[in-house]
Design a protein around this nucleic acid. Structure first.
Lengths: 237, 237
DNA sequence: TGCCGTCGGTGCGCCAGGATACACACGCAG
DNA sequence: CTGCGTGTGTATCCTGGCGCACCGACGGCA
């Protein structure tokens, strides 16, 4: 959630830990690189590691019994993957798909559990992050139902831009369609509108955000709402 | 989640507590009656009490900045209201609306916090419930987006039946429309189909479930999925 | 008994988005 | 430099659900 042109090599949650805790926690983390398309978890599968993205980011995807899929959350350097462990459940209810390649920190689930048990500060922080996530899940349900593709697309691009820490995104219409749960042609239409309005430019899978403010204007209010809650609960707490 | 014709005066979460913990917890609970339409919380508002419905039930409703609203979860004797407190946040992100009048137990937020801090068993149980809720929120997002009114209506009636512990439900089409985020006329259409198929009967706000198995058949798979996760994580754990 | 508020059935025009399909354009690899 | 795969533009038809509106029916209440 930093200005988009910076490239922090930090994770905001880890950064927010008290110095003492952070040191000991980081000592057990391993720096890795996430590759685009990598699957970190499948629904019902055991979570092996907790991930803290740096410049990378991860989509959480809900899938229904009939096979339909929808992205319900996105995790970048402002968050973490592995929340169920905080609740004492070792399985993921989602597909966790690496959507933006890049560096991340990870820690084995068991080790994570030990840190959690030992550090109330860590626990408190991650619980608050959990609250944010829960709030966002609720909002996604309503937003996906009520808002139209154009606004949702704008919102999604902004979220991606925040997490990629870059104005250059690598996304095909096909991929966007999967994430938003709509047809590819629907994305083409909405994207054309945004491009005509000079808010973005794109060409064969490379999207550039030209006018961030305009994009916020074009997005549904849910982008702003998400950020507001994150600020309230994580940053100002 | 008991057979629908029974009228348990227990809450499954409280029931699942170890005897010791339960006694001390119950001692601080107050038995009350929830009235239909009562609002237990508004978004951004402090949560004053934690509620454990017995025969009553509560809807959690997400509302968007532009005013659209959607029910995202339903809480009956299988659950509780006040989850954010478990995460150390004292606000509700939802409207909490009493949807089925009846008895409930409640406990002041502060007292609840003390019990939580003292009892790891209580904490573990409620965290697991939280996991279930999170899973359901994800599913609702996808279900609301992909599934049609008829299946969603059937699902919703089943969920209500479970929580009301009765085959007789008091719901107008108008109200159902609000919950599912569709037009009243859409509900009329779907309800007519269900009635024609002899799955339900209704008359001026009184709906009777005639054929539960058939209704499950008619519902989208999400009803079954919700129950499966609850069983896995709460009952069998 | 008659009024009126609530509930539910229905009709109409409209539109977003679904399914399907085809065509073109760019760019890399051979 | 040519061919093919991938990414994008576009067209057609279809459907589910929306907005709006009206009406009939039931039932509680005076």
């Amino acid at each position: 959630m930093q200005p988009s042109t910076l490239s922090p090599v930090t994770n905001h949650l880890i950064d927010s830990l008290p110095r003492q805790v952070r040191g000991s926690f980081l000592a057990d983390c391993e720096a890795i690189d996430l590759a685009f398309g990598e699957v970190l978890a499948e629904p019902g599968e055991r979570i092996s590691h907790v991930y803290f993205p740096l410049n990378s980011f991860i989509s959480l995807i809900a899938s229904l019994s009939d096979g339909d899929r929808l992205e319900v959350a996105m995790i970048g350097s402002e968050g973490m993957f592995g929340m169920p462990l905080i609740l004492g459940v070792e399985e993921s209810p989602w597909h966790a798909l690496v959507q933006g390649a890049g560096p991340a920190l990870r820690i084995p689930a068991a080790v994570f559990g030990r840190h959690l048990a030992r550090s109330p500060a860590l626990q408190a922080l991650l619980k608050r992050y959990f609250y944010v996530l829960m709030d966002q899940l609720s909002r996604v349900a309503a937003c996906t139902h009520f808002h139209q593709v154009e606004g949702r697309l704008a919102r999604w691009l902004l979220m991606t831009q925040d997490r990629a820490h870059s104005d250059q995104l690598h996304l095909t219409h096909e991929f966007l369609a999967m994430m938003l749960g709509v047809r590819r042609a629907g994305i083409t239409l909405a994207a054309t509108v945004l491009q005509t309005r000079r808010l973005i430019r794109y060409h064969r899978g490379a999207i550039t955000v030209l006018d961030r403010a305009g994009l916020i204007e074009a997005s549904c209010g849910c982008y702003a709402a998400d950020r507001r809650i994150y600020r309230q609960v994580i940053i100002e707490a």
